[in-house]
């Protein structure tokens, strides 16, 4: 079963009285353990597609199935549950909470899920160790470098063992060295069998991807392997 099935997805925004189509009929299948890079010029609809994949937004028409479940019919509360349990977000601007320690940031998805304190602290420590930050547990993310922050964000994305990781330009704010580190971590996760969809502008970061999906003007172009 595909992790993600997108069939004839359209998304139209209302701007004033005008309907502005952003996604114009997208069909896309993502299989387990795939590492998909999503590329395309600005304004082609990548972010919108990611938002819908991430259950932050709803399709105007068409179907989006996550693990076989149509997310179009779900309530806001159910969508939040899916975001919490099945999706791991990695943002370009990290989006960590500065007044919480790194440990608490990684715990947060588990806290929301109601995981017991001991269990989630143990798992958060393990995850931060996996990304090489076990010596920064009680620091605020504000005291970390960009690359380190993104590693915390990746640990957070993994907290509830999601079905898919959605990374929106994860290296967009990083220097070359940090980019390499982050890509190495993502490649490692993919090799462990995790499904990843990554929006990127940097062709070099796609070298580890199993597939590059090109988007242009609200449509998916050629699939390139």
């Amino acid at each position: 079963m595909s992790v993600v099935e997108i069939i004839d997805l359209e998304k139209t925004y209302k701007v004033g009285d005008m309907d502005v189509p952003v996604l114009k009929g997208i069909s896309l299948w993502i299989e387990p353990a795939e590492f998909v890079a999503l590329m395309g010029p600005s304004g082609c609809g990548k972010s919108t597609l990611m938002n819908i994949l991430g259950c932050l937004d709803r399709p105007s028409s068409g179907r989006v199935l996550l693990k076989g479940r149509d997310v179009g019919d779900l309530s806001d509360g159910e969508l939040a549950r899916i975001r919490r349990d099945d999706i791991g977000f990695v943002f370009q601007s990290y989006n960590l909470i500065g007044r919480m320690s790194n440990l608490m940031n990684v715990e947060l998805p588990m806290t929301l899920k109601g995981v017991s304190r001991d269990q989630r602290k143990r798992r958060a420590r393990e995850l931060l160790a996996e990304v090489g930050l076990d010596h920064r547990l009680d620091y605020s993310p504000l005291n970390l470098s960009g690359g380190e922050r993104q590693r915390v964000a990746i640990a957070r994305a993994l907290a509830n063992d999601p079905a898919i990781i959605l990374a929106d330009e994860p290296t967009g704010n990083l220097d070359t060295k940090s980019t390499k580190e982050i890509m190495k971590i993502l490649r490692g996760l993919n090799e462990e069998g995790r499904t990843i969809v990554m929006v990127t502008h940097d062709i070099e970061t796609t070298e580890n991807c199993s597939r590059v999906v090109w988007m242009r003007d609200g449509r998916v172009g050629d699939d390139a392997s």
């Binding site: 991430g54 932050l56 806001d76 509360g77 939040a80 549950r81 975001r83 919490r84 349990d85 977000f89 989006n95 960590l96 909470i97 947060l108 998805p109 929301l112 899920k113 957070r156 509830n160």
Partner: peptide, 16 residues
């Protein structure tokens, strides 16, 4: 606002 956005993105419901 951003923090609340993060909370919601990673799964907090409006109720929470």
């Amino acid at each position: 606002t951003q923090e609340i956005g993060v909370m919601k993105a990673i799964g907090a419901t409006a109720w929470e």
